[in-house]
Write a protein that binds this DNA or RNA. Structure first.
Length: 585
RNA sequence: CGGGGUGUGGCGCAGCUUGGUUAGCGCACCUGCUUUGGGAGCAGGGGGCCGCCGGUUCGAAUCCGGCCACCCCGACCA
């Protein structure tokens, strides 16, 4: 392929667009790859579309290689299937809804689980037909509450979504594993750095759901990783539980007057003034903070829950929510306090908590609250706290819960070192769906005993347009874009630096020769000054920049590597062979 | 949905406080001359419902009211 700057539909901008924040997003607009068409809506210009197609092709090749087959569904769908699965209601405002001229409800699909499930149901009815993996690359729509970061969170975006269908759990596990391997190969070819993190909560466990995150400070997903290679979603981080401590020497628990200390700060402050320790000052870490929430279960029943965490840590609402799923967490209201007089607001202590106590209120603690640990905590009456309260001796929690915030420097659960909190872009998600959709939509097959069994499914997604943005974001530098070889719009950006007939014709000839040799070439044949062409070449980001200019009189042209900045000279006569070697070798 | 901000030519912005010539600057675009290895210079030129609607006024980009759009932070989320 041979592209000419003189006729290419592109206009580079000197200034950053005012509505972009991320470096990659700015560069994509400035280099003329994309244009904003509306909030969360982007148009692709020729160069951007070339990158998009390259990314798409790599994803397709890897999916085909693992045996998945491509299909294509409409983006515009009738309401029916989504009503059957319950998602017409569940999806809420994020679903783009519209009506046709007869007033029938339709939607712009945010994902296609229902359609895949129904299509398989239409055609297959035997275990002999399975396993099956099918996929599509399709435009998806989500009416995001707040589109942002350019292509990263758009309202219209391209996604590869695939689904596996198996008769049993072992089959699902195998299909999942093959997708996992295919994703690893795909992201490696795309030139995207990634980590795989468990996306399920600790309570659910297992390898049921993993996310592929591309680490970058501009990512919007938070995860943790350790020097030893541990990586996990914040929701999934498990806290190593300390060994039980001996407590024979710990004095008996004693209640102290602590007037006006309803918060950890006021308590620590008071203790240090009125009840100082001999060895060191009291700190928040000596206290046990008990947070009361109201759980609302799917059947509507409400259950109070008290979560105990070391006083120097807050409860992470997202971690808590992940742990109690499918129940919902609601704040504990004044009315609730009235209904449970045993709970003294601001002075709640574990002595009256637990399923086996009179209150019957479930009490779960952070794993750091291990047997033998001693605490300062509420005495269940206003203005009083209890000291030297020992876990396992003076109170018995109903279990542990991963709800405390995770901090930089916390130990990794597998002993691989301190955790670092990092950000990443979610570029892929693989998920053992199970039988949710198959059950809702009645996808069953006959097994080898002639019995009807519900099919188990996996769902696997890669954001195609998001991958383009992630590549741009992680490879951009102060000069502009810098594409990995396999996704670049062209292999070589050939700068014709000079107006002499000899230079111009040498450039033209070289471009044609490279094209014939199988390289894709973008030649800058415009009547522009060299400085403009150099700057544009760097902004546009082809991996190899070739300069045909004044050194041609010595029979030499210049070759630059965009990513490293390395430049050297090669003989014009040997240029085709040498460049093919560099670009393809 | 809460908080903050911005709408002026294709892009980036000034002008608005204190209403008053023909709405201005840089980039980009067109013409001519010079220039040609790091975003050239000079001269000339084209392109604007100043987000929309209404109000105040002799007069509104500017003041007032309403609406809309977009961006950022948060909540939410592939």
């Amino acid at each position: 392929m041979l592209l000419r700057m003189s006729t290419l539909f592109v206009r580079t901008l000197r200034d950053d667009p005012a509505d972009a924040e991320l470096a990659g997003h700015k560069a994509l607009v400035r280099a003329g790859y994309i244009r904003r068409a509306g909030s969360g809506l982007y148009s692709w210009l020729p160069l951007g579309h070339l990158v998009y197609r390259n990314v798409e092709a790599i994803i397709r090749e890897e999916m085909d290689a693992m045996g998945a087959q491509q299909v294509h569904f409409p983006a515009l769908l009738p309401k029916g299937p989504y009503e059957a699965s319950g998602r017409w209601e569940e999806y809420g405002d994020t679903l783009f809804r519209l009506q046709d001229r007869r007033g029938e409800d339709h939607l712009l699909a945010p994902t296609h689980e229902e359609m895949f499930t129904l299509l398989v149901k239409d055609l297959y009815s035997s275990y002999k037909d399975l396993p099956l993996s099918i996929y599509q690359i399709q435009i998806k729509y989500r009416d995001e509450a707040r589109p942002r970061a350019g292509l990263l969170r758009a309202r219209e975006f391209a996604m590869k979504d695939s689904y596996s269908f198996d008769v049993d759990d072992a089959g699902l596990e195998a299909s999942y594993q093959r997708h996992r391997d295919a994703y690893i190969a795909t992201f490696q070819r795309l030139g995207l750095d990634f980590v795989i993190v468990s996306a399920m909560s600790g309570a659910m466990g297992g390898s049921g759901s993993e996310e592929f995150l591309c680490p970058t400070p501009s990512g919007e997903d938070t995860f943790v990783r350790s020097p030893g290679g541990y990586a996990a979603n914040v929701e999934a981080v498990r806290t190593p539980a300390p060994d039980p401590l001996p407590y024979d020497d710990v004095p008996a628990a004693h209640v102290e007057d602590t007037p006006g200390t309803p918060t950890i700060d006021t308590l620590v402050d008071f203790a240090n003034r009125q009840l100082p320790r001999d060895d060191r000052p009291w700190s928040a870490a000596d206290t046990l903070k008990n947070l009361i929430v109201m759980l609302v279960h799917p059947d509507g029943t409400r259950e109070p829950l008290v979560v105990g965490v070391p006083g120097d840590r807050d409860v992470d609402e997202k971690r808590l929510a992940a742990q109690v799923e499918p129940a919902r967490v609601e704040p504990f209201t004044d009315t609730d306090f009235d209904a449970y007089p045993v709970l003294a607001r601001g002075y709640v202590g574990p002595q009256v908590l637990g399923a086996d106590t009179d209150s019957g209120i479930r009490y779960l603690v952070d794993p750091r609250v291990a047997e033998g640990t001693r605490w300062v905590t509420g005495a269940n009456q206003p203005d009083k706290h209890v000291f030297d309260l020992v876990c396992g001796r003076d109170f018995q929690p109903d279990g542990t819960i991963e709800a405390a915030e995770v901090r930089d420097g916390d130990p990794a659960p597998d002993g691989s070192g301190p955790l670092e909190i990092a950000r990443g872009i979610e570029i892929g998600h693989i998920f053992q769906l199970g039988r949710k959709y198959a059950e809702a939509l009645g996808l069953k097959v006959l097994d080898e005993h002639g019995k009807l069994v519900t099919v188990t499914m996996g769902s696997y997604g890669i954001g195609v347009s998001r991958a383009v943005a992630a590549i741009a974001e992680t490879t951009v530098d102060e000069l502009g874009l810098s594409w990995p070889r396999h996704v670049a719009p062209a292999d070589v950006h050939l700068v014709v630096a000079g107006r002499d007939e000899s230079i111009v014709s040498a450039g033209d000839t070289l471009a044609a020769d490279l094209d014939r040799a199988g390289l894709s070439v973008l030649i800058d044949d415009r009547d522009e000054r060299p400085g403009v062409k150099f700057a544009d070449a760097e902004l546009l980001g082809m991996p190899t920049i070739v300069v045909v200019g004044k050194k041609l009189t010595d029979g030499v042209i210049e070759v630059r590597d965009r990513a490293s900045g390395d430049r050297d000279e090669i003989a014009y006569e040997a240029a085709v062979e040498e460049l093919v070697r560099r670009c393809r070798g």
